[in-house]
């Protein structure tokens, strides 16, 4: 094989890689860009330039901030955002703490009935949520917490996925680490807190993102459980814009755009934990 063929092959490979990347970037970002563009368009313009696709589909011909002003004044969206943020924060904090503790128990502590506990948790994933709405609501009512914020996030704290995820990562930490911690005279809890948790940082970060997005995007449950018209989470607030007689598209898009911002912020803050090599330090020698 001469140099020319090698260079050609490498050139071809680079072109293919570049094209695939371009395709990926476009495929993933186009809908989002369209949403942003539409949120700055007046109502009459949003669907004017959809068919056919041109640059005008994405860039407003007469851009306006009116939609956002309306969103925060007439529709009081700011309070919805605060409410959703508050709920998401509580969900994430409680969930990470509670789930990591029980995952630790499942992964590291040996005791009779451990497998039973594991399946006890796993089985909860199997019943679709929609089937549980009515009885769960009844439980919430009998606890006396219906129509409160707690009713929204309490059922989300113990999440079998997250428990499973943590357990998965904890299992992969070699036993030597764990025993080392114990020998130095720490209790299991201390080992859990200071040694194991930092080691599964990427899993915790994933869990934060999952629970945050899950809580942020949830619709049916907050809808069912809250009667107070002043406590509307963002998804319910957006859904209010779809009525039998009209759909306030300009507000829908500006609201949708605004709701993606906190999630992106959370993600950017957690970015650095995904850099390879942060936790890979293995056992030397």
């Amino acid at each position: 094989m001469n140099t020319f063929t090698i260079l050609l092959k490498r050139g071809m490979r680079n072109i293919i890689i570049a094209l695939s990347l371009l395709f990926v970037v476009l495929a993933f970002s186009i809908p989002y860009l369209w949403m942003i563009g539409s949120s700055f368009k007046p109502r009459a313009e949003i669907f004017q330039y959809i068919f056919p696709f041109t640059w005008r589909t994405f860039v407003p011909v007469s851009p306006t901030f009116h939609n956002f002003v309306e969103l925060f004044t007439t529709f009081k969206f700011g309070s919805s955002i605060f409410l959703s943020l508050y709920i998401a924060f509580l969900t994430v904090v409680f969930s990470i703490v509670v789930c990591s503790m029980i995952a630790f128990v499942l992964a590291k502590l040996q005791f009779k009935g451990r497998t039973l506990l594991f399946f006890y948790i796993l089985a909860t994933l199997m019943v679709p949520f929609e089937a549980r709405i009515v009885p769960l609501y009844l439980v919430i009512r009998s606890l006396g917490v219906d129509n409160t914020i707690a009713a929204i996030y309490l059922p989300w704290i113990a999440d079998a996925f997250v428990i499973f995820l943590f357990r998965q990562h904890l299992c992969e930490i070699p036993k030597d680490f764990y025993d080392a911690g114990l020998i130095e005279g720490c209790t299991h809890f201390r080992v859990y807190r200071s040694l194991m948790l930092p080691m599964i940082t990427p899993a915790i970060v994933s869990a934060i993102l999952i629970k945050f997005i899950w809580s942020w995007d949830s619709f049916i449950w907050p809808l069912v459980v809250i009667r107070n018209p002043r406590l509307q989470v963002i998804t319910v607030a957006i859904s209010n814009l779809f009525s039998d007689q009209d759909i306030l598209w300009n507000i829908v898009f500006s609201a949708a755009f605004v709701t993606t911002i906190p999630v992106l912020v959370v993600f950017f803050m957690l970015q650095k934990y995904y850099i390879a090599g942060v936790t890979s330090s293995g056992i030397k020698g």
């Binding site: 709405i133 009515v134 609501y137 009844l138 009512r141 049916i220 809808l223 069912v224 018209p229 319910v236 859904s239 209010n240 779809f242 009525s243 039998d244």
Partner: peptide
């Protein structure tokens, strides 16, 4: 108040509970 699209569902749940 509930969103119009979920009106019937919410009504049903309300009655069930």
């Amino acid at each position: 108040i509930t969103p119009y699209t979920e009106f019937i569902t919410s009504l049903a749940i309300m009655w069930a509970a």
